[in-house]
Design a protein around this nucleic acid. Sequence first.
DNA 1: AACGGTACCGAAAGCGCTTTCGGAAGTCAA
DNA 2: TTGACTTCCGAAAGCGCTTTCGGTACCGTT
Lengths: 352, 352
Amino acid sequence: MSELQSRNVPVTIARLARHLGLSAGTVSRALNNYPDIAEKTRKRVQKAALELGYRPSSSARRLARGIIETVGFVLPTTRNQHSDPFLAEILNGLASELSLHDWDLLVASVPKGQNEIDVINRLAGSGKVSGFVIARTRREDDRVNYLRKSGLPFVAQGRTDTPDDYSWLDIDNEQAFMDAVSYLRDLGHAKIAFLGGDPTLNFAWQRRNGYLRAMADQNGHIGVGYLIDGVTDELSAFHATRRLLTITEQDRPTAILCVTDAVAIGAMQAITHAGLTVSRDISIMGFDGLPIGEAVQPALTTLHQDSYEIGREVGRMILDLCTNSPSAPTQTLWQAKLTPRASVNRPGGNPA
Amino acid sequence: MSELQSRNVPVTIARLARHLGLSAGTVSRALNNYPDIAEKTRKRVQKAALELGYRPSSSARRLARGIIETVGFVLPTTRNQHSDPFLAEILNGLASELSLHDWDLLVASVPKGQNEIDVINRLAGSGKVSGFVIARTRREDDRVNYLRKSGLPFVAQGRTDTPDDYSWLDIDNEQAFMDAVSYLRDLGHAKIAFLGGDPTLNFAWQRRNGYLRAMADQNGHIGVGYLIDGVTDELSAFHATRRLLTITEQDRPTAILCVTDAVAIGAMQAITHAGLTVSRDISIMGFDGLPIGEAVQPALTTLHQDSYEIGREVGRMILDLCTNSPSAPTQTLWQAKLTPRASVNRPGGNPA
DNA sequence: AACGGTACCGAAAGCGCTTTCGGAAGTCAA
DNA sequence: TTGACTTCCGAAAGCGCTTTCGGTACCGTT
């Protein structure tokens, strides 16, 4: 107790051993719960370690054991900033899950002039990470292709076009948008438009497919100009919706399905701005479950996904992949939850 | 060339040395640009290293040199999710800057049952990070207090109430909101309300102070109920604004200054919903520069801060702190940029 | 031819930890 | 009392790299 951790001189295992009159090896085995240590000395060692504030150096530990216990996350390179309100939540969930097992999360970005592959390569090559989590997958994704053939453990949050031989966790976007179409049609909507995002991003592509498939299955008619791609944020949504509103009232959609909540908000703005009323004149539906959807007038009907839980599950998956012997890839599909609110109504504005 | 990196057998410095007929020490010095290596052999070593795909193990390197080259970022524990649209951008900027110097960013979250101090302690104690970046500072911040007395290098993004003896980068929130008040008063607004956030968070407190101080300086009158605290998101903003609108038209504010853009959006919704028109009846002003502000109708007047650049600068600061000998704390104050848009107008709705 | 000086490289110790191996006690049965 | 086990701990090697130290070989001077 008298010789507490003195800041400048970090307490090593050798120090601790000398203090106890034991050898370093014994101290190590005591702390790591080896069976060949007398219970009495184990207690003694643990007590002293606590008192002296001993913390094993993770570099030394990793070197000696040949382990890494760190997963890498390469931030998606996205042109428009703030575009991903989930990233922080996913990171939070991921880091939480990892920390339960004393693993670390290394976050890297892609510097100008490099691509994601370079970064992945560097991190894995120098032994800084033992696996990767990637997000925002594209239909055709270089990162996935590279990781796949490299043999490195990785989990993708979101699939690609050929998702068979690797591990991923994805939202069932296609089903979600089929559900959305059904929901709207059940309310009486026949003229349903779709504001789609960047179709090279797989989540947007899947939602687009869900819309198309459900419309086809249910003999829906997709009017001219009903499907608009490349709507990625509020502003482009605003303009896209204005274009929709130029359609004659006869042919104009009575409902607009939006690829994200952000797009939905932009669409609502355009409708209101055009002197129409959301829900009465045109129903709007989004996807994400952003908090803003509750505050907007009328409140936004949406499909909800829990980013934090996605992060945690992805964490479990990558841990499993990194610690256990190579097994078959785990592939998890989660359903989004439809959250009906006021922005969707029967066509013509009669309350449902 | 014949014996390329064979995946399962990582190429160590010893391997490389044997391959070259040199000693490990020589190879190490060659690659690290020691002066006592013949230029010819240095080239030879570098070439072979490239060909064999040699990557020094970062654990070994760190252990041998006694360095860490990693900064820790503890994710702020926030009750309402998605509440911080900047976090991802700040992380991006931070990671970018760090990677320029081959430093890493370790992101940790606070598991249930622990607090931020525990996490900081653990990361620093086991030598996983050599410094910290913290964000979302409170007026009285345990993390800052702890780090301050621990002697660990750290940079705070945002100050505390007693910001003298540590390094930080902050936006001049007080000045920004004084500017905002001036801007509104110059347009003729006398009745200016303020929707403030969580006053224990310093940025919200500073903005509140800016409002109060400017109103006092300019002999403005703060009407009853004009100042509402605890408005943190769109929904609470919606309700708070409804409360403002219950004031008689005579005394009702002609402009509402909002602590964030998200709050401003909620306020706009409430105004529109009440049958009034933003900008003509009531001017709205936010802070952040979110993209949604451009899409909303009318477009939101705001004060802009560039999160990515904030992240980069914080990166430079923490690098400086970690690599150089302890010096005086660097304290940087950045000004937000006022971005006039349509949501602010002269009182009475006459275009400015 | 002997000298000091320089350029270059190998040997070896060490970073802090883990883990195998062997040996000194102690235990028990015959 | 001896032998065979256990129990428990120390010694030592090793993880992959860095860095100091010293030594050889070569250079140019006197």
